[in-house]
Lab assay of single mutants.
Amino acid sequence: EADPRLIESLSQMLSMGFSDEGGWLTRLLQTKNYDIGAALDTIQY
């Protein structure tokens, strides 16, 4: 079963217009401990 923190973070990022095609966003959020800010910083640079 998916981590509730992942579901919450992923749904927030999907609502911002990101896609999780191929699961890349799920993996990114997992490596950033479900921190949306850290994930966005990684995507920006």
Rank of each mutant, 00 (worst) to 15 (best):
E1T: 13
E1D: 13
E1Q: 13
E1N: 10
A2F: 13
A2C: 10
A2S: 12
D3V: 03
D3N: 11
D3T: 05
P4V: 11
P4L: 12
P4N: 09
P4C: 05
R5I: 09
R5T: 06
R5Q: 10
R5P: 05
L6K: 04
L6W: 06
I7H: 09
I7G: 10
E8S: 07
E8D: 12
E8K: 13
E8C: 09
S9A: 13
S9Y: 06
L10M: 08
S11A: 15
S11W: 08
S11R: 15
Q12I: 15
Q12S: 11
Q12F: 13
Q12W: 10
M13W: 04
L14D: 03
S15V: 11
M16P: 00
M16Y: 09
M16T: 02
M16K: 06
M16I: 07
M16L: 10
G17Q: 01
G17D: 02
G17M: 04
G17F: 03
F18Y: 12
F18Q: 01
S19V: 12
S19W: 08
S19G: 10
D20H: 01
D20W: 03
D20V: 02
E21L: 08
E21A: 10
E21P: 04
G22C: 09
G22Y: 08
G22A: 07
G22P: 01
G23E: 06
W24T: 04
W24P: 00
L25G: 00
L25Y: 00
L25C: 09
T26R: 07
T26L: 04
L28S: 00
L28H: 02
L28K: 00
L28Y: 03
L28Q: 00
L29A: 01
L29S: 01
L29P: 01
Q30Y: 10
Q30M: 11
Q30K: 13
Q30H: 10
T31G: 12
T31M: 15
T31K: 13
K32H: 11
K32W: 06
K32A: 11
K32S: 15
N33T: 06
Y34E: 02
Y34W: 02
Y34C: 09
Y34P: 00
Y34V: 01
Y34K: 03
D35E: 09
I36E: 00
I36K: 03
G37M: 15
G37E: 13
G37N: 15
G37R: 14
A38G: 08
A38P: 03
A38W: 08
A39R: 00
A39W: 04
A39M: 04
L40V: 07
L40Y: 07
L40H: 02
T42S: 11
I43H: 02
Q44R: 14
Q44P: 08
Q44H: 14
Q44A: 10
Y45Q: 14
